[in-house]
Every structure is written in C-alpha cells, then in structure tokens.
Design a protein around this nucleic acid. Structure first.
Lengths: 404, 404
DNA sequence: TGAGTTTGTGCCGCAACTAAACAAACTGCG
DNA sequence: CGCAGTTTGTTTAGTTGCGGCACAAACTCA
C-alpha cells in the first residue's frame, strides 16, 4: 500500500505474451512439436522458437533437437516438445469419504509420487488437512523437486470468494468450514512455497478429464458423477471451469427425474440425487448395504458382478432411465458437446451404454443435442490431477510471474 | 484461396490491440471520460489518448475537449467520451408472432429509427424477411447513414453452425428453415453492406439487457422470458452470450415445476413451458382467450388490470410459485449473480416480487444463491437492440478490420 | 546425388506500448 | 487575485514483442 493504488502493469511484470498459451499447449499435449506449436499459436516460426526456448530456460519443458527420426512425413523433422520430467511439481491433495491422499503432480498431469492414502477421516478439517499436507511435504522432501503451489479437492461445494465448504455431507466436517484458508495455513506451516487452492472434487475431475482425459478437445464439457452419496456436476466451458458466480454452479442433484419418486431433503421428490446414487441402487436392487465397504464400491461391485441377476439388472435399468432423464434436462439447458460420467454413473453407462444414450436422445429436445457423446471418465486419480490443475493455473496463465 | 491457407494474421491486418476493448467500454457506457478509459484499459494516459483519437478518426466516437465544467472534483477535468450520433449504424430486424419490425441502431444501443412495424406474419420466411429488410433499407436511405451490418431476432432456437430455425412454433414457418441464410440473402439483395447475423430473440434480449439495460455489470446473467407461447432462456457469461455448442442452450421450458401438472409435448408433465406461459395463466384464471389480441397481451392486461379478482390473483400466485421453482432449479445449475425476467414473467415479478424471491430463495440450495437479485427487463425493444449487438460485435472485436 | 519440402535461426524493421517530463485545466485557500 | 495542489492531456524518447525475409538445416523421394 504505497500511496497510489495504480492497477497499471509495468512492462517488467509482463512476460512474453505467448508464453502462457504455449505452455498450456504443451501441458495439454496439443503441441507435440515446435511446428504445431507455431501453427497453434498463430505466430511465426521465429517467435515460436523464442517462446519454446524461454520455456526451456525456465525449466518447464524440454526441446529435443534430435528426435531420432520421427514419422515418415517429408521435410525437416520438427523438434519434439515435452514436459520436463525434473521440472517443478505441485502438491495435490484429496479428501473423500474413504480417506485422504496426497500426491506430487508435474506438468501434463503426470503423477510423480503419491502417498499411501489414509482410510479414515477425522471430524476436524484442520487435523485432516494438516496430515495430508504433511504427507505431501514428505513426498516433496524425498523427491527434491521444486514446488510451485498446492491444490485440494474436497467432496463439497466450495463457496467463493469465501472458500468455505458448504455441504461436506459424507465427511463429518462442519458445514461452512473455511477449508480454503485451513488448507492454505497448513501449506504455509509445512513450509511449502506457492499459492494454495481448494475446489470441489467433481469440478476438479471435470477439469482434469478435460485437459488430460476423456474430455480432451471438448468445447463445452459436462461431467456428472456420484460420490459415495449424492450426485455432483461440473461444466468446463471453452477450457475454463464454470463454477458460477459464487462457486455453486452445477449443483445438479435436485433435478426432478421421477415425479412419483422418493422425497428428498430439498423439499421436492424424485431428485436425481436420491434416485441415482449408490444407496438408491442398492435399495432398488433390494440389497442390504453392508458396513464394511463404501456404498460406492458396494454398488459398483454389485453392478459389475451380478448384472445377470434380474433384480440387479432391473435396478440398473431403472437408474439408467432416471439418469438419462436428468442428463437430458442438463443437455437442454447447457447444450454441451460431450458428457463424461464418473462414479456409479460411469458404471451404469458401461453396463448399458445404448440404453442411456437412447434415453438422453429421446428426452432432450433436439436430435443434434440428443446425440451428445457420453463417455466414461478415464483418468486415474482424476480429482487429484484436477487439484493439481488448480495449482498449475497461475503458471499456465503467466509462467514468468508465477515462477518469479 | 491463394495457394497456402495460412492462418497467420499479418501485422497489417491487426489494429491497435486496445482499440476493440476501448470501443466496447464506450459502447456499454463504462468509459464516460478518457480518464476512466485509461484506468479501465490498464494502459498509460498516452496510449488511451491515442486509442481514443483513433476511434474518433474512425468516426465511431466523439471526444469532447471542452466539457463545460464537469462535476466538482478537483484537478483538470477529463475529456468526455460518447458515441458519435452521426456515426455508422446497423440494421436490426425482429420477427415475432405479432408481426415484424426493422430499426437502425447506433453504438451504445441507441435506436436511430424504427419502421412502423407490421402486424401480420406470412408463412414464408423469405417473404417476411424480404419485407422487413426492405423496410430497414428504406430507413437507411432516409437517414443517409453508413451501415456496417445487420442482425435478426427470431422467436425460435437457431442451430449453429447451420443457422436454421428449429422451432418457429408461434410463427407458422417450417421447422428447420435456414433463416440465417435467407436473411443474409435478403440483406445482400437490398444492397446493404456488412455481414448479417441471426439469433434467438430471448438470447438477444439477454445480450441487450446485459450491455445496456437491467443486466449491466452482472457477471453471470440469466434471462428467462415468455414469448406468446412457451418459455425461453438465455445466459450471458462474462459478457459473452452462452448459446451452447450448437446454439441450443438454455432451452429451459422443460424443467419440471409441477409433478402433477399438465402433460407437455416433450413427453413429461408439468414443464415450465406449459405451466407458466400466457395460455397457462389465462386457463388457470379461467378466462377464455380471445382471438383479437396476442395471448401475451391478454395475459399481461388481465394481470395488471384485475389483480384484485381472487381468481386472477390465485392464478398469478400459482404461476409465481411454479416459476420460482423453475428459477430455483436454474440457480442450482447455473449459479448466476442476477436474473432478469421478460414477457409475462416480468409481469408476474412485478405483481408480487416478494413472493417470487421467497420461492426462489426457499427452493434453491444455498442461501447465497437464493438471494440472487431478480429484476424486470428494462429496455424498450430489447431484442431489436440485441440483434444490433450481434451486428456490432465484429466492430467491437476489431474496429479497423470491420470498417475496412 | 540432386530436387523438393518442411523446419529452425539470424537479422531487420515496424508499431504499440511504457516511462518520464512537461503543459494545461481545474479547485481551494489565503 | 494569485498561488499551491491536484488531476489530466501531450510530447518525446526508448523498449520490445513480433512479423517478414533470407538462408541454413534436415529430412524424403526419385
């Protein structure tokens, strides 16, 4: 606060303007060589060369001058671009009903190391986050790599700009916990450098899948997934996560998908939330949920192992129809060009993809929208990778400033 | 097509990079003076001065060197910026169930002239669009102003990239009419210069209200409006219209708002579409729709003139409750920071704003989201102005290229 | 081996921008 | 009325990111 609060960016603070976009292209694998980097950026070869050299100098990417004979196209082969293996990493952390886990993630969504993963979650967020961050810090010390930030995925809507967890339902945290600040404090206390970010796990899954998984290349990507209880949604628009004006968008669990369905705590009945989550599946299939495993795993195992059982199959079809109705409603509102499904929804899709696609096509208004591709999530640890994306974002936006 | 299809923009084609943003600031009224233009653009005074001078030289804005004593702030008063009254215009056209209308619209959403407005719509889109464009061309000849483009608003979803009208329900056009191409052909035939664009009327209403009306300054603006039949929605995200990956987003008419409601042609029952449109209101209030006026006008008149009548009031409250349910669903999905309502929904809001806000707050999941401001549309001829925005967009994006 | 093709690099120049110093136009106070 | 203080417009010089161009390099194919 030095007198004048001028927002003017000085020349010195601005990096080469194409630096960020170029790094993002390499990061998402859309620039395998310097030649395609040139065309993707829409600049001259000279500029692309300078940009690639600068990213290499920053220790972020590697430029292979001798690709050792590439594919059989004619002309001089282009230099290969790849993420530098020994480059900086970010700390990614994830908390869910089954426990928590930390990881180091490099550019390109590459998981460098993961902690074993704890299986119990305490009721005190500060304790849980302290432990997971400490596990990450341990990985960091062991690796000897530079850390440029940290990201956390939580199974709850995260309100912006406060950074509070509004409904950490299936982890026993108090609603409204300031998770972003708690996480940031843990990160600082552990001596980890760089900014800390927190986001909803389904949002981060969508982000990860968009950049490195089944959502690659989609313009408007819709992701719907069940956690252990309830349904979450996320939307990536033109490459950016849309989390609404206060971080609460895509709370899709309360679309009506069965007018005669069971009552929901929201006041309605037959909501997507209570009609298509793991508990709904077990109940519909008339199975008693056991205490030994998470509902999600029980439901998934049942669906895969006993699909021949008429009761299981019928329950699956019922859930598929309800899910299809919900997706059709979302298609009418959001008009995505791709849908990816996670959790139990992913299992339902794989159990009978034709049925789900038919319901969505039938109940969405236009033929074109009805034929939206529906795919399963493909990435392992996708919300961890998504948490890492959050931490990488400043670097992708402005590499010079973020690494300074 | 000169051999190489290079996408590289040459230096000559690029204008001063801040030219577009600067024009947009003046256009939307966010840069009343050169001083705030400087700070909004985040550039030096020298640059802002050069940019303003260039826009003035292009004949787009006016720079008043002698403001004749401004407000009582100290220091040298800044030059006033305003759109040039005699600057170029665009041709805006609108077709709806009651007829069609043409207008000339300048920068800043200023309506320069309007045609009388025809009250009948023929079944042949080519004929209707031919007439409305001819009316616009006549206005143009009379004004002697330069025309830089044309925009059309139609009461139908417009599929992208084909530009076809998918459901021109309440105008008797064939579904799938290539309205964009027809309009463009009419525009060219009338000798009007500049590109031609076509969009859905509710989308364009939202765009117009965002830039010049009740949506100003909103980050994520949701607009819901009834036409003469049915319900339409639109979303403006970070200043850009979100029309989905194929132009079909925000088809919000088929959210379930009354599980026991009347059946809808979409296959469901109790859809927003059939529960909150003008016909639904008249029916619920047990009034026989007359043939002399449009349903929208009849419903609006009834609501305003006979709100004391218990049957009318009860019908209004029923519709408000249903609308609130629908809006709450959209709030949960989109998390907008402002909602504006048009058509009968606007009348319902004004009849009992408290009730509507209460329902939305009650049925949306989070308190914060529940307190979204809900406002009526304020702009006269908002879809005409929106159609004009479409035509102005290339100029706002790159003034030099668009006026060349 | 040489022609053709595609890519990397060095050099020049432009144009858009910043920075800095100065001039201009106002307010307010003595 | 005059002068200090404040804010804005303008001029000048200097920096720089990037396009354009020419040429070299590295490959394929006949």
């Amino acid at each position: 606060m030095n007198g004048k609060a001028t927002t003017t960016r000085t020349k010195l603070e601005r990096g080469r303007s194409a630096l960020g976009p170029a790094l993002e292209l390499v990061h998402t694998g859309r620039a395998p060589t310097r030649a395609v980097l040139t065309s993707e950026l829409g600049v001259t070869r000279a500029t692309a060369g300078a940009v690639a050299a600068e990213l290499e100098a920053l220790g972020l990417i590697r430029v292979d001058s001798s690709p050792g004979s590439a594919a059989g196209s004619q002309g001089r082969p282009s230099h290969r671009l790849s993420v530098l293996e020994t480059g900086p990493v970010v700390l990614a952390a994830q908390v869910h009903a089954d426990g928590f886990r930390a990881a180091l993630v490099g550019l390109g969504g590459r998981i460098v190391a993961t902690s074993p993963g704890c299986v119990a979650v305490m009721a005190d967020p500060a304790q849980v986050l302290g432990e997971v961050v400490e596990a990450g810090a341990e990985l960091l010390r062991a690796s000897g790599l530079r850390c440029v930030g940290a990201g956390l995925a939580v199974p709850s809507a995260v309100a912006e700009p406060e950074g509070t967890a509004l409904n950490p339902l299936h982890i026993a945290w108090p609603a409204g916990s300031p998770v972003r600040d708690i996480f940031a404090a843990c990160v600082r206390r552990a001596g980890i450098t760089g900014p800390a970010f927190t986001g909803n796990d389904v949002n981060l899954t969508a982000l990860a899948e968009h950049r490195h998984g089944a959502g690659r290349g989609a313009q408007h990507l819709l992701c719907v997934a069940t956690g252990h209880r309830g349904v979450g949604g996320a939307l990536v628009l033109d490459g950016r996560l849309h989390s609404g004006s206060s971080g609460l968008a895509l709370e899709v669990g309360h679309l009506t998908v069965n007018p005669e369905g069971r009552p929901c705590h929201c006041g309605g009945r037959g909501c997507l939330d209570v009609e298509t989550d793991p508990l709904a599946f077990l109940t519909t299939a008339r199975r008693e949920p056991g205490p030994e495993e998470s509902l999600l795993k029980q439901a998934g195992n049942l669906l895969r192992a006993e699909y021949d059982d008429p009761a299981v199959r019928q329950a699956a079809e019922e859930l598929i129809d309800r899910l299809g109705l919900g997706l059709a409603g979302l298609v009418n509102i959001l008009n995505p060009d791709r849908i990816i499904l996670g959790g139990l929804h992913r299992d339902l899709l794989e159990a009978d993809p034709e049925r789900l696609r038919a319901v969505v096509a039938d109940r969405s208004l236009w033929g074109r929208s009805g034929s939206v591709p529906i795919l399963p999530c493909t990435l392992a640890h996708n919300s961890l990778v998504g948490a890492a994306e959050l931490a990488w974002q400043p670097v992708l936006d402005d590499p010079l400033a973020a690494l300074a």
